[in-house]
Amino acid sequence: MTMFERFTKEARRAIVIAQEEARTMRHDHIGTGHVLVGILAAEEPGPGMRALLGLGVDPAAVQRYVARLGAEPYDDLDADALATVGIDLDEVRRAAEDAFGPGALDRPRRWQAGHIPFDAMAKKSLELTLRETIRRGDREICDAHVLLGIVRAQPNDATSALRALGVDLTEVRAAVERELDAGQAA
């Protein structure tokens, strides 16, 4: 049995959503931040999502944070060079965002339409997901185990997003463990 065969429906869905988010954000890889967005975007909340929501994590704020990853902000030297020929880069940015939405010029240039690979840290967190599942003696891997793997693999984009939102990672681990224990007791 492969690791992914042990994934519950919500854990599989989180990974699928992570790939969709990476593609939508025009990122060239699936990182831990995308997986975190996937956990928070599930139709049916799993214990990982419930733990995060219980800690007050705002899914939209996480998505905005992750969308900014990989964005290449323009350089002040570029703005100065364009100003010498009469182009106001801030005005161009405002016009582009009015026409195409916030952050339209911040999307990375590298992007692929087909398969999007996991980056090294996302792979590491998935390896640690399996270790967390074994440590707990659980048979299936749910979104909570994935979240435990992400927290254990810190620092990474997902843990940076959580910290930026004022979430203590020790509290995340404790909340996830409580959710998993409550699920076993039910």
Rank of each mutant, 00 (worst) to 15 (best):
P45L: 07
D28C: 11
A67S: 11
G54P: 09
A61I: 10
R64C: 08
I39W: 06
Y74H: 05
V62P: 00
A71E: 12
L40M: 12
T24F: 08
A22F: 00
E72P: 05
E44Y: 03
V57A: 01
H29K: 14
V35N: 03
H34S: 06
A42D: 14
I39M: 02
A60R: 14
P59C: 12
H34Q: 12
Y65N: 06
G31N: 02
G48A: 07
R26Y: 12
Y65L: 08
A22T: 00
G54W: 11
G38A: 10
P59I: 09
H29E: 15
A71M: 06
D75V: 12
A22P: 01
G33K: 02
V66I: 15
Y65Q: 05
D28F: 14
A41W: 05
A51E: 02
H27F: 14
G48Y: 07
D58R: 10
E21K: 12
R50N: 10
T24M: 09
L40G: 06
G38T: 09
H29N: 14
G46R: 00
R68K: 14
G46Y: 05
L36V: 10
A60N: 11
I39S: 07
L52M: 11
A41F: 04
T24V: 13
A67Y: 09
R23K: 12
G70H: 08
M25G: 09
A42I: 13
H27W: 13
L69R: 12
D75Y: 04
L69M: 12
L52C: 06
H29I: 14
G48E: 08
E44V: 14
